[in-house]
Amino acid sequence: MKRSLLFLGFCAVLTGCDWMPGKPDEKVDKWRPPTAITDFHELYRENCQGCHGDGKLVAGAISLDNPTYLAVVPEATLRKVIAEGIPGTLMPPFSQAKGGMLTEEQVDIIVKGLLAWRQPLPAGTSLPPYSAPPGDATRGEALYKAYTDAIAKAGGEKMLGDGFYTNPAFLGLVTDQYLRTLIIAGRPELGIPDYRKVIPGRPLSDEDISDIVAWLISKRENEFGQPLSPDSVNTQIP
């Protein structure tokens, strides 16, 4: 007993108490500036998850693991949006140059991490262009009707309240590009289909999408409920 205790004590002295649970671990406990975080998941959790969800959880803004979205969005656009935000909308800038908290490297890490979530689309999928000018609003009206019908059919009636995408307050908070992105990518996690599943049998064409967006834009109003002319609406891209 005495000997084993002595032995233990000897070991403790020899190893400099390093085996003890209280010993600070330089890798974990040593302070690093927040700008030194290079782990994509940590950055995503701290900066994106609140509005965009984390892949499993859904949140208010479009999910960033949406396969169609990741397939159509150009890398440069994604980077620009994260770094500089989208002025006039709820997407804030994250790069320090624009008043955010992230370094350029951290923005790159987020972009790379998001693009790593890309999945191969089914063979033969023809993607519409990410961005295009609005099309024919009158044609868009009918298509939009089909669009909402498809959602209702899929059990999403609750989402269709408030005028759905034509709600003027909603339209006042989003860009034309975001409308286009929503039509293309949908929000499958909520029950809003992407462009391929709106009309049975065929995907929406680039033209269809532009027409729906044009119809939605025509529903924009100012704060007093007066319709806006298409020229004066917020058309900042992206």
Partner: peptide, 24 residues
Amino acid sequence: WTADPTEQSRVLDRTPLELQGLVV
């Protein structure tokens, strides 16, 4: 504001306007 997730029942079955409200 950027990190906290929202309980799923507070997100699902909301209109686009309401979802936008969550983003606000």
